[in-house]
């Protein structure tokens, strides 16, 4: 008698436990909790202002969802990144998210990851066609559009100054990445519509503010006797500001109001917005770290939940000038 009662209560307890477990698991699903999932983020270092906001946005949202995140940082160092990719694959995470330093160098890594069964989310810069089947998906910026916006900024600025001819230089991000090449392509496309303005020099600033400033300084000196430089396309706001500082130090005037140098940035930041407001930088464009990070991490979360994700997600980009400042200043100021 007591035995059956004991069995009964045992059975009852089992049923109850199962019910509780079922409820718990469904609530967990409803929350989209991804506890137990791991992501290895191979990314640029937080010493770069854009990367800091971008990385923070990604890691905080992943952690909020219960994902364990390992971060491996490099300063756009292609060699170190290959080693970090190997390390990431060894950790066998549910997803590797990589911000490429060089798209050619990562070909081998992506193929290795595929062979090891670790999915890769390629970020920001479009993956090399050779590895399109090897990566899981990519979230990239509309880089050609960003290049076009920079071209429009420069042409509009120079026309506002009423210049009939001008010398333009470009201080780019790391040239080995396709995104930098795509931007340059978009830029040159637009610049070709204004042949009176010549692009006379393109230098690799490696997404580095200090290096970009130094290059600007050297080029200002170099071209002083050859008609000078009237406009600069910098690859990001945080490299455009040092360019403006270098121009000031060289005794140059900056901005339309002063009748001086026209500077265009991209990857807008608060400093860039302030500079446009102050009339120094002529214009910039989005690919702000906050929005780019948000699109990327949302796609990653979808993927981790097992939902279907498009192979290529292109984040839309917008041109920012004094006229459209109000519209974009908020989102840009998060970086």
């Amino acid at each position: 008698m007591s035995k059956t009662a004991g069995n009964k209560s045992k059975a009852l307890r089992a049923v109850l436990l199962a019910a509780v477990a079922a409820v718990l698991s469904t609530t967990a699903h409803a929350d989209g909790s991804l506890a137990g999932k791991t992501v290895t983020l191979v990314t640029c270092g937080t010493s770069n202002p854009w990367c800091k906001v971008f990385n923070d946005q990604i890691t905080s949202k992943l952690k909020d969802a219960g994902v364990k995140v390992n971060v491996l940082e490099n300063d756009f160092d292609a060699v170190l990144e290959v080693q970090q990719m190997n390390e990431a694959i060894s950790q066998q995470p549910d997803l590797i998210m990589v911000e490429p330093a060089d798209d050619k160098t990562l070909v081998g890594s992506a193929k290795k990851a595929k062979a090891a069964g670790v999915p890769v989310l390629y970020m920001d810069s479009p993956a090399d066609p050779a590895i399109m089947d090897d990566i899981a998906f990519q979230v990239i910026a509309d880089n050609v559009a960003l290049g076009r916006f920079a071209g429009q900024n420069i042409i509009d600025g120079l026309r506002e100054l009423g210049l009939k001819k001008a010398n333009v230089i470009v201080i780019s991000g790391t040239k080995g990445s396709t995104m930098v090449q795509d931007r340059q392509r978009g830029f040159e496309e637009v610049m070709a519509t204004a042949p009176e303005y010549k692009v006379i020099d393109v230098q690799d600033g490696n997404w580095d503010p200090v290096l970009s400033g130094n290059i600007a300084q050297q080029l200002f000196a170099k071209y002083q006797s050859q008609g000078g430089i009237q406009a600069v396309r910098a690859e990001a706001d945080y490299t455009a500001i040092p360019v403006i500082q270098a121009a000031r130090q060289a005794g140059m005037k900056v901005g339309v109001a002063e009748g001086g140098l026209i500077v265009s940035g991209t990857n807008c930041t608060k400093a860039g917005i302030d500079s446009i407001r102050a009339g120094e930088m002529y214009g910039t464009a989005t690919e702000d770290a906050f929005t780019q990070g948000e699109y990327t991490v949302d796609a990653a979360l979808k993927f981790l939940r097992g939902e279907k994700v498009e192979k290529t997600i292109v984040v839309p980009e917008y041109r920012v000038t004094k006229a459209t400042l109000g519209q974009y200043s908020e989102v840009c100021s998060k970086g």
Partner: peptide, 18 residues
């Protein structure tokens, strides 16, 4: 003064083939 990429990445993949 720049990091050079090696476009002939098949060589590396052969060298590191497991």
């Amino acid at each position: 003064s720049q990091t050079l990429a090696y476009a002939n990445y098949d060589v590396g993949m052969w060298l590191d083939g497991i």
